[in-house]
Design a protein around this nucleic acid. Structure first.
Length: 554
RNA sequence: GCCCCCGUAGCUCAGUGGAUAGAGCGAUGGAUUCCUAAUCCAUGUGCCGCAGGUCCGAUUCCUGCCGGGGGCACCA
């Protein structure tokens, strides 16, 4: 609809120019918006204000000219007005909205899909939590955001790959091995000093107990071997737990990428050699430094320490080079906000390896403040006291958790209240939206009971009886969906879908309370079912993008 | 000290240059012989942190300041 109005305006400007009424052909792109006030029409254009200086005419005069040249063969426009400083307001003929419903039914699950991505290969890397402990709530938010962003991009025509990067190498893994090893010794009755920098959580004790059971050769190994054995065992065990948790959270990945595999394939060495040849690496104090400050970072960064060990950053450089080698046009990383200082050096590495900085984006997800009935729940990773993602989803359910994670812009801190998440009221919007879907399912079932044949009414519905203001309002809201999806995709902001769904749900509930869908008039009933089924489809599509289920019954 | 994010109704937050700035919660009053009351309807609330600047027009963009949060390792 918006597009049609744009075309009509563009055509009117052209016609006026050809007649010599508008002096200049310097037409800016036509922008249309939906005014907040109903009295300002369905659509509004500021085009005459923008053109005023180029055309050397008063905005209101330009508006008059445009209006007098409008050509509207389909009779979409009921009325136009010139308002304020020169807005042109368009009032759409109510019946012109009806075709939106046909479109929704025809496109069904693809309604709202677009091809703005044009098949470009894009990778979304998310969660990528170290296999040194279970996923906690913060990771859950990252998972929900990453998954929804991937869904959105895919729906917008990108060729999307989801990836999890496993830091299964380096210091934190040996520290994990050491932690488990020490707990094993403790279980064997030895008196040990458990260091501060080891992993403190109880899950380390559990792992120690398991490995003692499964590997009775452990006491025979020398300490280094035993630690390494513990490390490998623990990392694998934890990672498989992470996989399970994500899967029951509804998140799956196309690829799990091991950091260790980069070393095994010589990719880290190759990346460093490449950077040497590009002259962006130098030696100082026995270490190798990458000149990230040449690319906007505040200082240079070490890639090989003076003990010969490569840093985590070195692996990351190799990893991101390798992503582009795999043919991705764009690479998105979803990180916790505490990594934000890492962005400039990562950007530097992208640019130094010959890619452009806009091929790489980081989505920084802010922290989650967990509470229960308003009382904060302590979350300290160091002390090993944290609420795991599994704990939360077990308690409040996957749908509520995922939806709540997406009710804020990812860059805002999120308050997550466990009691609130279980409430079945308006406080908890996930049920508000799902309830729409369930109610419509029920309507359909009742309709069938009464002998309304679905296939038939989808074909024969005559829509002219859909003329109540609430009905037109509902259709207008449905018409906005594709645009919302596009902007959510382009900006990678899934919360736009969340808000839209809450809006649409409000419009539906209001309609439902005011009008009966199943009436004694068969034609009216068919028309209304046609409308509410379109609503149901859009709700279902939107929830799917968010990774939330659309229940038939509640 | 430097960097990033935030500052909008009593609370939690939407609003990527437009007209009279919105929603939920909370408060008050109402709605169910009838399609799911997990719903709806009605009634209030705002120096959009402050000060400049750009613009026909700024909550939105720019600069400075104030306030809140996070980050600043040869850690990951």
């Amino acid at each position: 609809m918006k597009q049609k109005i744009k075309e009509i305006i563009a055509q009117a400007m052209k016609a006026a120019y050809e007649k010599g009424i508008l002096p200049s052909s310097g037409f800016p792109p036509v922008e249309i918006e939906e005014p907040k006030l109903e009295t300002h029409g369905d659509f509004s254009s500021n085009i005459s204000m923008i053109m005023a200086s180029v055309q050397k005419m008063a905005p209101r005069k330009i508006a008059e000219v445009i209006i007098s040249h409008l050509d509207d063969p389909e009779d979409i426009i009921a009325k136009t007005e010139i308002a304020g400083p020169g807005f042109i307001n368009f009032f759409i003929n109510p019946f012109s909205w009806h075709p939106v419903l046909h479109e929704i039914h025809k496109k069904n699950t693809a309604y709202g899909a677009s091809n703005i991505g044009n098949g470009k290969k894009i990778q979304v890397e998310f969660v990528s939590s170290n296999p040194t402990g279970p996923l906690h709530v913060g990771h859950g938010r990252g998972a929900a955001v990453g998954d929804a962003v991937a869904n959105l991009l895919s729906f917008c025509g990108y060729d999307v790959q989801r990836e999890y990067y496993i830091n299964d190498s380096g210091r934190q893994i040996s520290m994990l091995g050491r932690s488990v090893f020490l707990r094993c010794q403790e279980l064997a009755g030895k008196k040990i000093e458990f260091p501060q920098d080891c992993y403190q959580g109880d899950y380390i004790r559990d792992l120690a107990a398991i490995i003692r059971e499964q590997r009775d050769d452990l006491p025979d190994l020398d300490e280094a071997e035993a630690i390494s054995c513990c490390a490998q065992f623990a990392a694998e065990n934890i990672l498989s737990g992470i996989r399970d948790d994500l899967e029951s959270f509804g998140v799956t990945f196309d690829r799990w990428y091991s950091e260790q595999s980069l070393f095994d394939a010589g990719s880290v060495e190759a990346a460093l050699t490449d950077f040497r040849s590009r002259d962006v690496i130098y030696e100082k104090d026995g270490a190798l430094w990458f000149k990230t400050s040449d690319y906007g970072d505040e200082k240079d960064r070490v890639v090989v320490k003076n003990d010969g060990q490569t840093t985590y950053f070195a692996s990351d450089i190799a990893y991101h080079q390798e992503k582009f080698d795999r043919g991705f046009d764009r690479v998105i990383d979803v990180w916790g906000a505490d990594h934000h200082g890492y962005i400039p050096r990562m950007r530097a590495s992208i640019e130094a390896s010959g890619h452009s900085r806009d091929q790489f984006d980081v989505i920084l997800v802010k922290l989650v403040n967990l509470s229960r009935g308003g009382q904060p729940v302590a979350m300290s990773t160091r002390a090993g006291e944290f609420v795991t993602l599994k704990d939360v989803t077990d308690e409040v359910g996957r749908d509520a958790a995922r939806f709540i994670f997406l009710t804020r812009h990812y860059e805002s801190p999120l308050d997550f209240d466990l009691e609130l998440a279980k409430k079945k009221t308006n406080d908890n919007p996930v049920f508000y939206v799902q309830y729409v879907h369930a109610r419509i399912s029920s309507l359909l079932a009742k309709g069938i009971e009464r002998g309304v044949r679905v296939a038939e009414f989808l074909e024969t519905s005559e829509l002219s009886m859909l003329k109540a203001p609430e009905e037109i309002q509902l259709i207008k809201t449905l018409a906005r969906y594709p645009e919302i999806v596009q902007s959510a995709g382009e900006l990678m902001e899934p919360h736009r879908i969340t808000y839209y769904l809450m809006n649409l749900s409000a419009a539906f509930h209001a309609y439902y309370n005011k009008h009966r869908v199943l009436t004694d008039d068969p034609a009216l009933t068919c028309g209304r079912l046609y409308l509410v089924l379109a609503v149901q489809k859009v709700i279902r599509n939107g929830l799917k993008l968010l990774g939330v289920s659309a229940p038939e019954k509640m």
